[in-house]
Nucleic acid binder design. Structure first.
Ligand SMILES: [Mn+2]
Ligand SMILES: [Mn+2]
Ligand SMILES: [Zn+2]
Ligand SMILES: [Zn+2]
Lengths: 138, 138
DNA sequence: AACCTACTTTATAATGATTCTAAAGTAGTG
DNA sequence: CACTACTTTAGAATCATTATAAAGTAGGTT
């Protein structure tokens, strides 16, 4: 239920000009009750149906990349031919349903704490993600 | 240190005809002391340098896919533009060095046991993988 | 308001990994 | 040797993503 002004402030405070396109994309991504996972193609479809103005595919790519850089979006590690993004930017893990190509959140509490006993000198850890691949029974 | 006959037997027992190309690829992948991670392009280079016979890129793709299906290779889950494969097919996890695009094995003992407290009815778990992304300090 | 300039959007082309096609080659069998 | 199913291959096609470069815009300045 965030309104336009909130998005404008958020964008400005991250050094991004609040353009028509970026505000529309904010609406599509964050004006919802629940976080969700999407591909670029998913988002393009959502924008086409929900929004009047046409937003070019290049802008969608640019914006998703920009939003990822300022931590408005997270990219999920899957070896798919497409990239998957998540509006839930907190640390959490995923099921990936290989039968439907859908991601499902695994809350941190759903996974026992991960204790890494190996360290790599001279490197810093950027993320620790668990991916549980699942498939339909049968 | 496996020899040609061993590869031929292995291939036959998996329902794959032991062709020149497949045997060469087995040599490149398994005639080593340590397991390793590679992309298709990596493997193509290795084959070009180590082997006399030219093997087409299509065959390399076909063979890697076939080897994956019979569990001679494992594909690692990374959101890269390329696919990464592993000659270590046992359950284990990875560091991914984003500075060099290299994978490093994390032995199962290097990670505390993972207890999944969430289940998805009607689905079976195919794999559970941890990916730890790291980057050069600085 | 008119103006300036850096940032943005956009259509379009280019890239590059992967997959497809269909023709030529080969392994295994009898 | 002959047969057939499997395999390899060059080349084309696909498709997500990135690059290009020209037109548009935000936000400040005069
Ligand atoms: Mn891939
Ligand atoms: Mn990708
Ligand atoms: Zn998520
Ligand atoms: Zn490995």
């Amino acid at each position: 239920m965030e309104n336009k002004e909130t998005f404008i402030k958020k964008l400005r405070s991250s050094g991004l000009r609040p353009t028509r396109q970026r505000i529309e994309i904010c609406r599509a991504l964050y004006d919802r009750k629940k976080t969700f996972h999407f591909t670029i193609n998913d988002l393009a479809k959502i924008l086409k149906s929900k929004s009047n103005e046409k937003i070019s595919l290049a802008t969608i790519y640019n914006t998703v990349c920009a939003f990822k850089n300022i931590n408005y979006l997270k990219e999920i590690s899957i070896n798919s031919n497409k990239s998957y993004f998540d509006t839930n930017v907190s640390n959490h893990h995923h099921f990936f349903n290989e039968s439907t190509d859908e991601l499902i959140d695994l809350k941190n509490d759903d996974v026992g704490n991960i204790k890494l006993k190996k360290k790599i000198p001279g490197k810093k850890i950027k993320s620790v993600e668990i991916l549980v691949k699942i498939k339909d029974n049968n």
